[in-house]
Design a protein around this nucleic acid. Structure first.
Lengths: 191, 191, 191, 191
DNA sequence: GATGAATGAGCGTTCATTCAT
DNA sequence: CATGAATGAACGCTCATTCAT
């Protein structure tokens, strides 16, 4: 069913993502999606077998394409603490700038679309670049000796919460708030 | 005459809560809910005006009733660090033992049921008992001088994440994992 | 099922009649009827087998009890024209003063309650007292030689229309209007 | 693409009209209507917002389209009495041939569909062509000097009743019956 | 391929009727 | 008898999906 008009696939997925963040996964109607994407209802079904497949494709699209909008460049020779700080900040910014991303995922895992699907929720902690930095920090005895996956989880938990509140209150994170956040993060994991 | 059984409100709400955690807010069908609660479809409509009101009532039920399952007793003369540790543990356990609670809330805020409602998402951070302990800790110079609400947010972010993973993987938190978690938490906020 | 408490039967029928005139036969709900009559829903079912029977009983109640509110006394020795005039006026007043009566009948014949019932719409023209006066008038050569039932029908058609408009516009019939009406009526049928 | 078929509006309205005459306004089920019109249930909702709107549209359709099936031609130079006779006959025939018309209107005004609607029952007597003939007759001193609207009302009352009985008994009006009817009508209004 | 009118299974809700008290 | 909470069949309406153009 996939055709050469790959831009239409992107258009539909992006539109779906935007709408889901706005009205929720449950509220998404195929006809509304088509209208907002500027195509006919039937057209959606040319590119996606049904709503199930569309949502699932959206999931793969998000998890595999990634965001990679990281603005802060991490220099190879930055000290580890600075690397982690920049990485954490990028992670936070990604979450704040792409709230649809997490909005969708949060809903997806609890939705019938995920449940019907046999696939398991991936715990791709290792994919987080922060994972490797933490392992590296442990090698340098800068970071607590402990299950690095657990540390990543705690760090991400904090950052996710900051992002969620920032998005919800529509206030950006002030420099002071960011310094406080990183201070708690770093003091928490440093050895 | 059969007397109006007010426990049916509880029964229906509890059943709804269980089902929503299992099949999602979007997948909840009034007839299924009635069947699982052991009543007729019409009976649900005696106690709740419509699905909208049912969901909304469930929200108020959860936010106002609270869980209060905290098993670990906090002694008045415990040192502050111990108090926080026990409280954090209780918070974690509540979240793990009542996964439907957060499962519902997470979905509710993104659902049409919340959106149609004019009410705003309350950010009742001060209601968290942990808030008062942190303020107390700051008074004793045990905890970083910083916006206590922000600290609470970071701490809850960590604990929420731990609970989420624990529920998802169906593994309880080992003593070692808990010690690690609290270590990061405490080192992060202590002054 | 009929019990000695015949007043409750009357109460329910009268309440039903009032409500049907107000909200229509289709809009009548058994629970509303019970509430407005001041009894419990189940009580209605003690006196009437089901809604079908209730409506049918209401029909028999109206057609057999009659209204007999005729205020103008017809003297035995009035001239025929005066007798007919008084009778027509009584017929008109009955229709105006009991608008629920015709409101119900009009709806009944077109409703599923009548249709399901095998009974035929009775054409009990002979029951109209006016019928006998017209036959008498024909014997006296005062009234056109023609099918008396047809004449009754035409006369009733006029009076029904006058009553309908009077009820709808909530204006009573002025003496001048009544004189005009009877003039048309009498000139139409007199020989 | 199937082109939107505006004749479907007519088809659905006509089918609804037929069914309402048969089973009553209250008995009309959207699914039955769709089936009898030969379309799917959902299709009805493409052309009409809901049952309420459908019924209301049917009302406007009937009152604005009119019947205009008058078969008897009225010649310009017919004497007034003949003109009125032909017009009365046309009015009668219209009522007999389109019994659904009056069957619907009679039910509509007493139904919840009309009551919920703010609109008032129009009493457009002047729209009746017979009104103008009666005024003309009064100018020629052929017809009683009296409120012409009231005369129209009486005349229509008679004819409505004749039509109603004819439809109900399924017997057409014989020439003798018609002559009698018009005799009563004319003698009633002539001066 | 693209369109959007048409479809109909399925859900939310109502209300005549029953029945435990 | 009286009550009104409980019942569940049946209706109004929605929306994912199809298909004639």
């Amino acid at each position: 069913m996939r055709t050469k008009d790959e831009t239409k696939v992107q258009l539909i997925l992006q539109t779906a993502l935007k709408m889901i963040a706005r009205i929720g996964l449950a509220g998404l109607k195929m006809s509304d999606l088509a209208k907002e994407a500027g195509v006919a209802t039937g057209t959606v079904y040319i590119y996606f077998e049904d709503k199930n497949h569309l949502i699932r494709e959206l999931y793969f699209y998000l998890t595999h394409v990634g965001t990679n909008n990281s603005t802060q460049q991490i220099a190879e020779n930055d000290p580890l603490k600075i690397k982690i700080k920049k990485l954490a900040r990028n992670y936070l910014d990604d979450n704040i700038n792409n709230p649809e991303h997490s909005a969708f995922l949060e809903q997806y895992f609890r939705s019938p679309y995920f449940q019907e699907n046999g696939s398991n929720r991936p715990e791709e902690v290792q994919l987080q670049p922060i994972y490797h930095l933490i392992v590296e920090g442990q090698r340098q005895s800068l970071i607590k000796e402990a299950d690095p996956e657990w540390l990543v989880m705690l760090v991400c938990g904090m950052l996710n919460e900051v992002a969620k509140v920032s998005v919800y209150t529509k206030k950006s994170v002030t420099p002071a708030e960011w310094e406080l956040t990183f201070s708690v993060l770093w003091d928490g994991i440093k050895s």
